[in-house]
Nucleic acid binder design. Sequence first.
RNA 1: GUGGAUGUAGCUCAGUUGGCAGAGCGCUGGAUUGUGACUCCGGAGGUCGAGGGUUCAAACCCCUUCAUCCACCCCA
Length: 425
Amino acid sequence: MKIQRVKGMYDILPEQSAIWERVESSALATLKAYGYQQIRLPVLERTKLFAQAIGQETDVVSKEMYSFDDRNNESLTMRPEGTAGCVRAMVQAGLIHHHISKVWYNGPMFRYENVQRGRNRQFYQIGGEATGVSTPDIDAEMVLLLQAVWADLGLDNLTLEINSLGDAETRQTHRQALQSYLGEHRSRLDDDSIRRLDSNPLRILDSKNPNMQSLIAEAPVLLDYLDDESTRHFTDFKAILDACGVEYVVNPCLVRGLDYYNRTVFEFKTDALGAQGTVCGGGRYDSLIERQGGRATAAIGFSMGVDRLVELMMVCENNLAHPAPDVYVVIDPSGKVMVEAQHVVEQLRKACPQTVFQMNLGAGSFKAQFKRADKSGAQLALVLGEDEMVSRTAVIKNLRDRDAIERTVDLNDLGSPHTSHLLSV
RNA sequence: GUGGAUGUAGCUCAGUUGGCAGAGCGCUGGAUUGUGACUCCGGAGGUCGAGGGUUCAAACCCCUUCAUCCACCCCA
């Protein structure tokens, strides 16, 4: 039996890697333009870091972590998300003592979940964290930054949902109100909802069950419980989005799965990817840094699911062109010129650094080589046959224009502008 | 953890009542001297997911198991 890949962990094959590169480079360039600097973090952290930061009771910590004891009998965990480790690093390095720090990271995260479309056990996130700013201007700038990434990628079908969770007290008070309200109408709840009553009552408000809609409509709304400062924060946040022409939906039921969030939370969603439509999520975590032992510092972060963005790019058929070489080099099938041909092409690569040359490798008749040349997508074929090598020339054939005449280059004059011109595409 | 679907060539998939393992694409050789695309003729490539059972005979029926996909839950 051949050894197969581990469930939920995928190989990113050459066919897709170009799109990955596109998403990553687009995010990188935009983050740079908004003043974010890269931070590179370990995959392994101490287990208690995540338990503390994310919350012992969350699904992620209670049943989805890849944890194990190392040889020193210390429990380590493969990071299930990026923020906890990033905050740990920033506190450890003293970065939170600046007026503001903006960092971004990119890498694999691990959660032991049942796989389905858009949900893998090893998945990739590009995340950004900004510490030191408690005002809503940074919240809005982060959303604008993300919008700029979508625009750059040509993704125009994402909807932005926002909400404010207030502070911890807000959520606690609302949760109790919600539980007592739903508890009073227990008879109208379906089985799923009764199960969630203790674990996650806010989720009940998301139910699609038509029999419960009137009940849900009357339920206590989190936004009504916000303290004054959170309300003002949320209002100002929305005002900046409005001024910048950002469309959004206030979703009072939007909650995040990790405990550290407060105030502003947001998600970018698509309906083109099946059930897992959240492509990017984020929010404030103003008390996390202090809880991690740092000086009390406000902070906000986001993370985008690169796997999902890549899939969305493929669904939208945005630019799936395979990268093609510019010049395919056909050499004499006899093998007599193999040594010299490699030398010539090496000189050409230096003389024309913008041009991508693909040597024919692994022998083959002229016929076979031209078939490969055609299939490669190259514009030009450079023919280094035995006759040409004797006369120190090479033939350039245009593979995309039937009527173009074949041209000849002088192999003694490879560095000349004339040669470069003939080979430029 | 709970449902449902699917496993046959590198890929996408046919395979009738149980009766020789198939197609398209891809790969590869050829169709008169060293030239691709369109066309034509060849070739290679299979433990039919795995194990067991029924049968003269199993890709097909039965049992077990593994894997994949989709969904619930939850999240990026």
